[in-house]
Amino acid sequence: MQLVGVRGVAKVFANGVKALDGASLDIEAGEFLSVLGPSGCGKSTLLRLIAGLTPASAGTIEWPAGKPDLGFVFQEPTLMPWATALANVELPLKLGGVARSEREARAAEALDHVGLAGFERTWPRELSGGMKMRVSIARALVTRPKLLLMDEPFAALDEITRRRLNTDLLELWQRTRFTAVFVTHSVFESVFLSQRIAVMSTRPGRVLSELAIPAPYPRTEAFGTSAEYAALCRLASAQLSEAMAA
């Protein structure tokens, strides 16, 4: 079942920069899709358009089954420094008018799901970069959204933390089955995580090609070192080079 249809979308900013031109993309319900493209090609803009945070200059975004609740994870954790981890995760529920006791229970559960049980009363400044990102993911998932949009969420983290978060994110996705759209500029990350990769051209961005990653889940360390993985990375890399040359 199709969840989102991006149809020939263009985005021209007030300063005249054309970030997107004729971008089209179908997103299936429940899939894990990566959007891969060079930095500055309009990936963030595309994600913001899908989220409805900014209007398209041309083209449409269709929701055949209606627009569902969605969650958004930014490249930075984007936490409120004056609020504890729990209060940060509670925020979407609070804005949605959920009663306090239910709010706290659900936020604690969401923190538990990202491996942060026991950190409810911790302040953001006391958390490591990886833990802050986990809080950010918990906040995005606390409303149990059908669609989770992630904008290079792990790009600022170190390699080891990134690997753990990748594995944990996949586990969360398998357990909860939200639709995941994961923006990245890393070929390795996109191949490891997703069922399908949409490769974008340089600015003005559009989706130039797609690549299916048929490997089964759960994907572990072993998959990350397999020959199959290496071959798929080579393929994705070639498509990315093509897209950048086009």
């Binding site: 989220a51 945070l53 969605l70 958004f72 930075e76 984007t78 925020l91 804005l95 949605g96």
Partner: peptide, 14 residues
Amino acid sequence: VDHNLLALFELYGA
């Protein structure tokens, strides 16, 4: 105010 936090508030209809 962090503009991403503002976007988040907008997303949740605040």
